[in-house]
Nucleic acid binder design. Sequence first.
DNA 1: AATTGTGAACCTCTTCACAGCT
DNA 2: AGCTGTGAAGAGGTTCACAATT
Lengths: 207, 207
Amino acid sequence: MKKISDSTISRLSTYYRTLSNLIDQGIETVSSDEIAEINNITSAQVRKDLSFFGSFGKRGLGYNTKALREEIAKILGLKKEWNIALVGVGNIGRALIDYEEFRKQGFIIKALFDKDRKKIGKEIKGLRINDIDDACYVTKEKNIEIAIIAVPAKNAQAVVDSLVACGIRAFLNFAPITIKVPSNVTVKNENMSIELEALSYYLTQSN
Amino acid sequence: MKKISDSTISRLSTYYRTLSNLIDQGIETVSSDEIAEINNITSAQVRKDLSFFGSFGKRGLGYNTKALREEIAKILGLKKEWNIALVGVGNIGRALIDYEEFRKQGFIIKALFDKDRKKIGKEIKGLRINDIDDACYVTKEKNIEIAIIAVPAKNAQAVVDSLVACGIRAFLNFAPITIKVPSNVTVKNENMSIELEALSYYLTQSN
DNA sequence: AATTGTGAACCTCTTCACAGCT
DNA sequence: AGCTGTGAAGAGGTTCACAATT
């Protein structure tokens, strides 16, 4: 399959959310122009993004909201639940356990890991905190497919290395560091300081 | 000033972090090639990014780590502390209050807001939770420059609208929705579900 | 009449490659 | 000799504009 850009994929996610909202409002049909307007982009962009995957609209009419959301769900792989491991039960980690948005989209945290002896064995929301050294056993048992890395920067690479060795191929990394992985493994970064620093830059510019 | 791309700005943030790590290791000189290697990019990219702002290296030698970090700090506006308001004291919000990384970079949370009567008046880490309706008074008193939006999607636009009316011009938005703002206001999004959905897409593709 | 789907044009970002400096 | 700084080339992403369809 042809290579689709990261931007297209992340815009599909926003279309998915837009469609969900429209469906909640009882709206059955929507044009690329309306989807674009809601998301501050152009209608050509919306149509082009969708065109990589098929023809989902009707000329003159637009798109059926439910049908289009269904198509995007298929594209993004949201028709199944994904089993997630959360590594690092600190502030960020604990917030993510309670993050409704993940569960709503079918991302279910099924395993917790930490390396702090004081935490291991305890439970949060019915989930036992496991020793990261037991990662391979637990991830296999629980069928984990994606790991969220919420450990300090200095430990992040080692944690990912060992999970890659267990066969995990997708990571959401909250540590402020670039993680190295083999080419068949995907890492997405969630680096909150970077965005704040961009704001700092723009504010500094405009003064 | 010429328009610098978002990607360049966010890479500058990563160079800043890379340089901090090198300095901690006592390394005094670094080449664009080494910075690139650490961050999985090309050395031409590193040099081009820096070239938009000046000439900070010595041909044949590379860059002085401390001097370059200083330059990047100036560019990104990190030579001062930024006063931040956090709106929405839920799971995510509370995690951010304790997030050391922000404080370390000079982003100091100085005001908390919520609209839940049960929370207003209480304190977290010595910070009083204020009524979002008092936003203008409090943001002015505390000299707030950036707001972090950690409220449910359905309230996010209204919260931002009222803070824009108070004069806030920079937002870090955690709500999974596109916020509309005037052109002199900047919004950066931190949408964790989007990144997970991208992982879901890549895993789905490769199976 | 309205709106999609898409090749072509356009624009922006990245990489190349080398002159210039240390 | 080694590495930066940068114009030019190349790649990739976005927008235009219009034929096709309902």
